[in-house]
Design a protein around this nucleic acid. Structure first.
Lengths: 166, 166
DNA sequence: CGTAGCATGTAAGTTGTTACATGATTCG
DNA sequence: CGAATCATGTAACAACTTACATGCTACG
């Protein structure tokens, strides 16, 4: 894959749970090569401009394998939506409602796109592909979490509407 | 509140959805004072060592109010667990299982602590406190999301156990 | 011929963590 | 008296984003 391809990949395939910027990708690729964990190769296809295709080395595979087996590092919790609602009464009710409705819309859109992606995958990827079950089940996490957030938005919405009537 | 108090606060009260390091807290407090959004006051209580108590200024309140009304900034998705499982077949099944079981345990612990915190809040905070409904409903997001993740772990667990038998 | 997409990269800036340094008090 | 907790702060580093710079090709 080229650096550009990697960016496309995060955008199209794993945007559900991951993202990277060009800055991050090209900088780290350079580091990986210095450390001997990857190699670069210039490729020309027909009239297209040249492309630098990166490949993992056997040493890189080993390091990757080790990392994959390491326990998952716990990420610092940082949910701006929750934070803003913790100080709820400081925000006008109409604004609170708008925040919730916007968030719900976003989650619904993401949910729909994810669902579509899974449908496409189930149709197009043959069952024999060993990754398939992981891809499908893995995507389920995104679905379940988004459903949970939508449910919360509904609860929050009725709380706010009740307050508005008072 | 003092800087130290703020750290304790994130740890004890809002750790469910937020966290800050001392580095961040003291550095930003300094900036807020330079910008006139907060003031510092040295306080001595009995024999205790001195404490610097910070207070928001009216200008600070205004800026805070504006920020609270701004739309929630979308955070970059970065879920290491999902990432590791996307490349599932590269990990030995026993290790995958261990990852899942560990994550499930962590989520269950967090869920239990959150539930306790809510129970305590419902008993101890009088209903007339305007923040109360927001605190309780706000905490629900943490509960729903953790429940979703636990459910996913169960699904993943049975997928892995099925594969192990093959 | 201009716009969108393909393709690579860097520099500056922001944000945040970790580790360290310091010193007082409280409690078993 | 030693460990935990209260309390403040900084320096080094790590991670990451954004904006910019460049130039090619495909297509309407």
């Amino acid at each position: 894959m080229s650096g550009y391809d990697m960016k496309q990949f995060t955008k199209e395939v794993i945007s559900n749970f991951w993202s990277e910027s060009y800055g991050q990708i090209y900088t780290n690729l350079k580091m990986l090569i210095e450390e001997g964990l990857a190699t670069a190769r210039e490729v020309e296809e027909g009239k297209k401009p040249y492309k630098t295709v990166y490949e993992i080395t056997s040493q890189g595979s080993q390091v990757l394998g080790e990392w994959l087996c390491e326990p998952i590092s716990t990420q610092v919790p940082r949910d701006e939506l929750s934070l803003k609602f913790f100080v709820g009464p400081l925000i006008p009710l109409e604004v609170s409602l708008q925040h919730i409705l916007t968030h719900k819309e976003q989650q619904k859109e993401q949910l729909a796109r994810l669902q579509q992606a899974i449908n496409r995958m189930e149709k197009e990827v043959p069952d024999v592909v060993p990754h398939k079950a992981y891809w499908v089940t893995g995507s389920r996490l995104g679905i379940l979490v988004r459903e949970a957030r939508i449910k919360w938005c509904d609860e929050m919405e009725s709380l706010i509407r009740t307050k508005m009537k008072q």
